[in-house]
Nucleic acid binder design. Structure first.
Lengths: 145, 145
DNA sequence: TATGCAAATGATAATCAATATCAATATAGG
DNA sequence: CCTATATTGATATTGATTATCATTTGCATA
């Protein structure tokens, strides 16, 4: 938490950006949530602490947190962009339940390796990837029986 | 092509849907394009043959083609939904160039197998997945040097 | 072949997340 | 303390997609 603030502060000064109470509030609130949040969700939470904040500011600064390396965008394909921690939260993919929306973070180093190999096969240099596994979680399958 | 029309025709009658010239035109035009197209792109192409067609009709019927199993939605994450052939075009993933947008269809049965295993590990029953590999293609890397 | 009804179309409005605009305000360096 | 300029908040705008709705049309049936 302190580290993240430090990184953000350094990023701001290095880029001639200013330290504002709104930015601090957004960063703090974002860091407190462990799960991914959409800009809208974060805005709703932040409004309670500072009703005067504008939602454009939340959108803007989530983008900024991504640029600073503190957040990462995730797109589950439902039309809403979400953000998750990027500092000390190594890359992972998502397993998503089609019926209840539950998500699980997963990683598989073998898959990652194979992905790189596929890319090379076609002359590509892999920069990143998105992998979303959709299915039905244990709970939901029990219920539907 | 004849097969696809057949499937579509059967799908329509089975669902009490009607065979219209617009639908036929949309299906034909879609089938002629081998690469993925967005509704907007397809609309632009179709307009030339039938300027009276409405773009809502194109949107509607691409959705319908998906339901009929002739098309498949692909979401590269740029805010535009694209459609690709689903008949006689087995599942595959995409390798996408970040700088020129070139795409390559790829499959890796080992990855597919591992994905299923991961899902099971967490009690999920895998229904489908999305995997997009982003990078820079050979051409673009040469150019940027 | 005419008829009626539900489905489909086309034009347009509405949505919805996200971004742009812009006047007013606030920050940081001198 | 002042100034240049980044930032904010309110609002308008965008862009893709979907909803609405009056009109038209396919098609099963008489």
């Amino acid at each position: 938490m302190r580290e993240e603030r430090d990184i953000f502060g350094k990023y701001l000064s290095r880029h001639n950006l200013r330290d504002t109470p709104q930015r601090e509030l957004i960063l703090d609130t974002f860091l407190k949530r462990e799960e991914h949040v959409s800009a809208e969700q974060l805005y709703d939470i932040i409004k309670k602490r500072d009703p005067s904040i504008g939602q454009a500011t939340v959108y803007r600064n989530l983008k900024l947190l991504s640029e600073a390396g503190l957040a990462r965008e995730v797109d589950f394909g439902d039309g809403v962009l979400r953000y998750e921690h990027n500092y000390n939260h190594p890359h992972h993919d998502h397993l998503i339940c089609r019926s209840c929306g539950k998500t699980v973070e997963v990683v598989d180093t073998v898959i990652e390796e194979l992905q790189k190999r596929i890319a090379e096969q076609y002359g590509f240099e892999l920069t990143d990837h998105k992998m979303y596994l959709y299915g039905n979680c244990g709970n939901c399958r029990k219920k539907s029986k």
